[in-house]
Each structure stands twice: as structure tokens, then as C-alpha cells.
């Protein structure tokens, strides 16, 4: 276990807007060095939580801390360790890309290594010409790349990224994943919200799922995947009738005369003995996906 304070520590955090509760008694610990996925539908409270961590919003009650520094009472220290990518990047369009990076470096009070910044610029394939253009001429993808560069450029201990790959093409997404792998190797912590579940599955160590301001699932990606059901597609050599009874955990979701699709929750060990009585021609098991468990989780909690 890593020693020292948590990269992020949230205790009983609540944020209300009048009668609306955006975040409700949230508790969360993110240890240093972890890549943490913060998931939830729109309006679940992800961005509100992130903005409280940056002292942009003030909590109604509870506390949040970054590396032991309270995000409100000691916010300068807390923010000195953070690189932030907002979900919607508000920019001043009369600046060039380079001017924005330099301006943000200068007000950040932390020198940026030119080598490191150039490395980021190369990774995200922004040319000198791109950086000399006014931001009003930037496409959505270019703005996103610039946003990522400004978040990473001071090499912060904690990266808070709100929907980091939104607007990036697949090549740039790949560049971003490689960058995450590199910062992980150097012990940096990443706290990212995302809607892209395959991305979360690929890069995150742990996830928290938020619903109506409350955490409804907090686990490792592996454990979350175990909660999911798998789809099994069985093809038969001749017509078969659907069985009157299915073993526990099995659900027949599509039954054709020569093909069934089953949803199996839990281990697949009992599958061969169940199918032994049928003229099975082929069998295909779809890998358990995080998307499936999250959708199911949302549905169950909603019900």
C-alpha cells in the first residue's frame, strides 16, 4: 500500500442547490498512483465533485482534500498538485495555442520543462503552425489536445480529467492512453470522469459509479466485471425446443429453432452439463463488459 496521505480524500461531501442535491454525503479515497474512473450519467454529480476538489464550488457540508490539503481552507496547496482538464474548455479565442500554454504556465507559478511540453505537443501531433494559430481557428479535437497538454504540462502529481477523450479521434485517444500509462509508471494519480466505458475498462484501476449524487458502486474494474452477466450464443445442428426450466443464473433472451442467446450470470462451469442434452454445433461466449454491469446496475438501482 502507498504511504502518505491519499491523493484524494472525500468525506461526507454534500452540495445542494436549493432543494436539489447534486452530491450527497460522498465518501471516497483515491490512493496515490491510481487511475480512478468516475462514472455516471449526465447530472449524476461527477463534475460537481470535481469542481469542489478545485475549490470552484463550495460544498454545503463535508470535506475534500488533495494530498492532505483541504480543498477549501488550504486550496492553494491543494491546487498546486493538480492538473485539470475541464469538460468544456472555455478559451479566450484571440490567443494562439502557444500563448495560452505560456499564459497558463506563468500564472501557475510552477516552471514547465520545455522538453516535457514539447514531448506532449509531439504526442498529440500539434505542429508549430497549429500552435501559432488563434484558438478561434481550432477544431474541437485540437482544443481538446491543447486542453490535455495544458493539464499535463506542469507534470502535476494529480490529474483531474473531465471526459478527456471527448472529441479526440481514435489515434489521439491511443496517444492519450499511452500518456496515461507513462504517468502511471511515474506514480502520478489520475482521477477521470468518462462516459466511454471501454476506455475506463482499459485504463482504470478502480471505478466509482455515481447516481443522483451518491456512489452506488465502488470497486476495482476486475471486480466490477465479475458482477456482469455474459452472453452465450449457442448454435444447434437441428431444430430444438426451448427448455421449460433453466438453471439458476441463466436467462434465455432469444430463442430461434437453431440458435439461442443466453444471459449467464456468474460462473460458466455449469454450462457444458446444461447443454449436453442438446445437439450443439457451435458455442460463442461474449467477454463480460463493464458497460453491461453499469447499465444493469443503473437499471436495478433505478427500479
Amino acid at each position: 500500500m502507498p504511504s502518505g496521505p491519499s491523493a484524494i480524500s472525500i468525506n461526507g461531501l454534500t452540495k445542494r442547490y436549493g432543494k436539489i442535491t447534486a452530491v450527497n454525503r460522498l465518501d471516497l479515497e483515491v490512493p496515490p498512483g491510481e487511475i480512478f474512473g468516475f462514472l455516471g450519467l449526465n447530472g449524476a454529480g461527477k463534475t460537481t465533485t470535481i469542481r469542489i476538489l478545485l475549490d470552484l464550488l463550495r460544498p454545503t457540508s463535508g470535506h475534500a482534500a488533495v494530498f492532505g490539503h483541504d480543498c477549501q481552507s488550504d486550496s492553494l496547496q491543494a491546487r498546486s498538485a493538480v492538473g485539470y482538464l475541464p469538460g468544456e474548455m472555455g478559451i479566450y479565442s484571440d490567443l494562439t495555442g502557444r500563448e495560452l500554454l505560456v499564459f497558463l504556465e506563468r500564472i501557475g507559478g510552477k516552471p514547465v520543462s520545455g522538453k516535457h511540453r514539447n514531448n506532449l505537443i509531439e504526442r498529440f501531433e500539434l505542429s508549430d503552425r497549429d500552435l501559432s494559430r488563434k484558438l478561434r481557428e481550432y477544431s474541437t479535437g485540437m482544443k481538446r489536445k491543447l486542453g490535455l497538454i495544458q493539464a499535463f504540462q506542469a507534470d502535476p502529481l494529480l490529474l483531474i480529467l473531465d471526459e478527456p477523450t471527448e472529441g479526440l479521434d481514435p489515434l489521439m485517444q491511443e496517444a492519450f492512453y499511452q500518456l496515461l500509462a507513462d504517468v502511471r509508471k511515474r506514480g502520478r494519480t489520475v482521477f477521470m470522469s468518462s462516459h466511454v466505458l471501454p476506455e475506463v475498462e482499459r485504463v482504470c484501476d478502480r471505478i466509482a459509479m455515481l447516481r443522483k449524487g451518491e456512489i452506488v458502486l465502488l470497486s476495482s474494474v476486475e471486480d466490477a466485471r465479475k458482477l456482469s452477466s455474459r452472453r452465450v450464443r449457442v448454435t444447434f445442428g437441428e431444430d430444438v425446443d426451448p427448455p421449460p426450466n433453466l438453471p439458476p443464473g441463466y436467462e434465455l433472451i432469444d430463442a430461434q429453432p437453431r440458435a439461442w442467446t443466453l444471459r449467464v450470470t456468474g460462473q460458466l462451469g455449469g454450462l457444458p452439463s446444461f447443454l449436453v442434452a442438446f445437439p450443439v454445433a457451435d458455442l460463442a461466449v461474449e467477454e463480460a463488459g463493464l458497460e453491461d454491469v453499469l447499465v444493469r446496475y443503473y437499471r436495478e438501482v433505478a427500479e
Partner: peptide, 17 residues
């Protein structure tokens, strides 16, 4: 205006009072 456009998010995410 900077709050409305979101520009201030980038500024105040830094260690700046």
C-alpha cells in the same frame, strides 16, 4: 464573463487565489 465562458476554470485550477 470569464465564469460564463468557463475560461476562469483553467485559471483558478492553478494555485492562484
Amino acid at each position: 464573463m470569464e465564469i460564463e465562458t468557463g475560461f476562469i476554470d483553467l485559471v483558478l485550477a492553478r494555485s492562484l487565489a
